[in-house]
Design a protein around this nucleic acid. Structure first.
Lengths: 225, 225
DNA sequence: GTCTATATCATGATAGAC
DNA sequence: GTCTATCATGATATAGAC
């Protein structure tokens, strides 16, 4: 009873953000109405506009709340393994693991809603609304630059254009894996409790991506143009 | 002038489907209103309900129009290379190329709207609306079963669970690549006209996926549970 | 088959009392 | 900060003339 009785300062904001993560993941942005959102959050209909200004501003706040620390953690992790290597050149697999690990570990976080967000995030990379894609791209840009530079050092002989494509593929695999965690059942039966073991998934995904990134370079394109 | 004057039997249906592909890709399903859709198609507001029954039925018709022949082509292509091999076991790369090739070749088809559809399709694998995901899964099921069986023959020593995961990763990479064709610019500058060369993309993607699928199996999970 | 006109409802946002 | 009541808009769907 004391659980609901006390209301800390910004609890309303937090309740709205938490409910939004879950509902946007389930029904999409356009498919989630303010009425459903506020009633799920247990707050008044007008609260979203009071606290955030508009639905769009709520979406932006939602992404910033999670992405800013996640990307900071990704950069910190990369710097950590770089200093730990003491001058040795990193292998691509180490870099990939640093990148994907930060997303995947949130999957295990069901308590604070991290999993909802991470699934929403995967879904949103292909979001049609231009404003949302632009926001995501902007929040990601520094991290992507940092990792691209690291991979260029790890793969000095790979043509830059090929590396960009392979990073694109890797990003896609991660996004889809995060978003479509229930689609595995389409391919074959898995015990649901296994599907979210982040450590196991991290190993599987890292092995797959590292092999793809290191795929042999064709000496030439299949047929000269 | 004769171009618009004559109206073949089912031209209205086709005009609606073509406009829907483009608009759903740009704004999503919920973000595309019937008013925008019918005015873009140059037909009356009531035409969608007359010809399809409802917006949802239109979406279903849209997917069936493209997916049924595409998946039939995928199965036919697999059977073609299997008979052509005359008993030799196919390598995974041949199977992968057969699968991704059918999607990618539609990218070059700007004339009849194939590219719009293929981008829409990639976006829709992570669509939150359960009914749409269920429809897609149902339309894909026979193809996936067929390719899974082919890959099991090509990789007899791979544990079935690992293969399912790697197929999941491959499917994700393809989906994202199809959906987010403009996201490459986030990573680095590419000349836009290069980005849609389907043959080049097919080579790049197939090399990446084949390497990932063939990634060495860890002798054990990183740490025993 | 195609159109106009409209019914019915849900949406995001706001005004103003408390 | 929170509430109720409401506005203006735009949604899907349909009825009925042509």
């Amino acid at each position: 009873m004391s659980l609901r009785a006390v209301k800390p300062q910004h609890e309303t904001r937090t309740r709205i953000l938490d409910a939004a993560e879950e509902l946007f993941m389930l029904h999409g942005f356009e498919g989630t109405s303010m009425r459903l959102l506020t009633s799920r959050a247990g707050v008044n209909l007008a609260a979203v506009n009071y606290h955030f200004g508009s639905k769009d501003a709520l979406i932006e706040a939602l992404f910033r709340r999670r992405l800013d620390p996640m990307n900071a953690a990704r950069i910190a992790e990369l710097e950590r393994i770089e200093t730990e290597a003491k001058g040795r050149t990193l292998v691509p697999e180490e870099i990939i693991r640093a990148f994907v690990g930060q997303s995947l570990r949130l999957i295990e976080d069901t308590k604070s809603g991290g999993r909802s967000f991470i699934r929403l995030l995967g879904r949103t990379y292909t979001e049609p609304a231009k404003a949302i894609r632009a926001l995501i791209g902007q929040l990601y840009a520094p991290t992507m630059e940092r990792y691209k530079a690291a991979l260029e050092r790890a793969l000095p002989h790979m043509p830059r254009e090929e590396l960009v494509w392979r990073m694109h593929f890797m990003f896609g695999t991660l996004s889809y894996t995060l978003a479509a965690t229930d689609a595995v059942q389409l391919i074959a039966g898995c015990k649901p409790e296994d599907r979210y073991d982040a450590r196991l998934l991290e190993d599987r995904l890292t092995a797959f991506l590292a092999a793809g990134l290191n795929a042999p370079l064709k000496t030439s394109v299949r047929k000269a143009a």
